[in-house]
Write a protein that binds this DNA or RNA. Sequence first.
DNA 1: GTGAAAGCGCTAACAA
DNA 2: TTGTTAGCGCTTTCAC
Lengths: 337, 337
Amino acid sequence: MSTIKDIAKNAGVSVATVSYVLNNNRYVSPEKKERVLAAIRELNYAPNAAARGLRAGESRTIGLIVSDLSNPFYPDLAKACEDAAQKHGYAVHMINTNDRPERMEQAAAQAREGKVDGLIVASALEADRELLQSLRERGFPLVLAHRRLDGLDADLVESDNFEAGLLAARHMLRLGHRRISFLAGVAGSPISRLREAGYRQAMAEAGIDVLPAWVQSGEAKYAASYERMLGYADLPSGERPTAVINMSDIGAMGVLDAAADRGLRVPEDVAVMGFDDLFLAAFRSVRLTTVRIPRSELGRRATELLLDRIADAKLDRRHEVLPVELVVRGTCGGERG
Amino acid sequence: MSTIKDIAKNAGVSVATVSYVLNNNRYVSPEKKERVLAAIRELNYAPNAAARGLRAGESRTIGLIVSDLSNPFYPDLAKACEDAAQKHGYAVHMINTNDRPERMEQAAAQAREGKVDGLIVASALEADRELLQSLRERGFPLVLAHRRLDGLDADLVESDNFEAGLLAARHMLRLGHRRISFLAGVAGSPISRLREAGYRQAMAEAGIDVLPAWVQSGEAKYAASYERMLGYADLPSGERPTAVINMSDIGAMGVLDAAADRGLRVPEDVAVMGFDDLFLAAFRSVRLTTVRIPRSELGRRATELLLDRIADAKLDRRHEVLPVELVVRGTCGGERG
DNA sequence: GTGAAAGCGCTAACAA
DNA sequence: TTGTTAGCGCTTTCAC
């Protein structure tokens, strides 16, 4: 690898001059400039990032922490984040925690070492609060995406989860359902809490008492949701919920499959909804009615907020709520599309 | 952010001593050591990565280039890569190219700037050959994963694509099919070429002439495969392939959906297979028979090879071929599982 | 055992 | 208009 000195020597100028043409922040005579450029081409030179970073005190890289890359929710968010960052000359350093706390610690370490200039946390867990708070206290730029962490002094972009729950439940209600189940996410998850609140509000508006058996916390993943639907299927049909709203599209797939395995027809015997609107929800063999969570927008806005914050640390804290949208397909009947 | 100087001052020792305890590569008296450790804790110090990197001439970071993060194929590969890298103290810098050449150039730039110590390319395109070759010529550590690039002087880990094609076609043959279609990937893709060769070999073994209409190149994605299956569906039933092997599980979903849209039953009217064995292939509503491509192993081995190469640049070039596996589900009949 | 100081590659203040 | 040089934070050689 050649250095700026090699270029200077090759072009017969000082290193300062090379630096000037590199950053073009000083006038350099056309002849010298051309010689420098030629030397750069000839030696295939690229300025060393570590040296630049050390000098400038920044890495021009942001970190993106996601909890589970295999969840199709995150790749879209990550892509949008990368696109937005790139537009501003930043690279994205993605870290997949698999919800393991030690991975989060590694991410924080990278922050403290200056490997990244700021962090987007797309999966903040209660367990991460202290770590993230300590980062913030040291003034480290941080934005939470998708999952909020109440009381944490950081910028936040989320979707309108209350509205999402409201939309879902109202849709079921409109279709005539009364026994509507809400299969929530892990207890304490703010996303789940908000959506459940929306669901409860819709039920209250309709004058329906929500029975305890209708609302269950747990993992929103395929297997857990499958099991929970199996539980409903074993109920006598007069007690069984006629509609099931699941915290995620992936979980809704489990509900759908469990219903099928028990000979329950969708939507005739059970109507099913999810949240997210993943690509698989659109498959003809699925046609899942769902509430779309704007993941790309989440990623893009989070990045923009972070970049703003990096540029100006004393901005007021911001909190953005992105709109969600009902997507009607086949699993509740009344398909439009 | 505090620096090593702050620690030295706080602990009343020299920066050298701080460095020694940081890296613990010299004997330091217990008392001083304790004072240094205390100062580090007190000031919440972490050594600056840029300074270290500059000094050491390495970033302890590897780059992972994937072509499309939204394709569920890659996240699993990326996770395995991250796990393996982490085990050796390396971070992973993921870059999503979306198959755009300029993104590949940015990745190469990061390599030349020393932001990463080596690169795993999980989606090498013909168009990238020159760029990658020039990196190799400068001795930059590079390993190709999943997609080979003939003639490129780089380590390679791929799956046994010829065998995969063979397995798929033989499975259909065993089930009694004769008119077996192979919906290939983009023309010229080595993966597609190899799998097609396996398919053709199986057909030849069975003494069947492969009709031109049975083999079609194109995108292996949902929409393109959907269209191609629609084309088959319009054929008189005596000419229509009774079995369709698609280059990817996602594409096979398109085939499945097109068949359903045309009232064709699976597997009675058409048997369908994919490649990959994505999580969605296992859904009860899908139950796709497929050939499993070992994506996690691909990611893990690629990382190990790269780390080896970083440690020792003059290793012989390596080429590993990972085994694939037939996964029988419902879309061809004869389900075992 | 510990410390002073050189130097990794770069930028920019200052001098000329 | 261009060059000299200090210094970013760290590691390590060399000296004591």
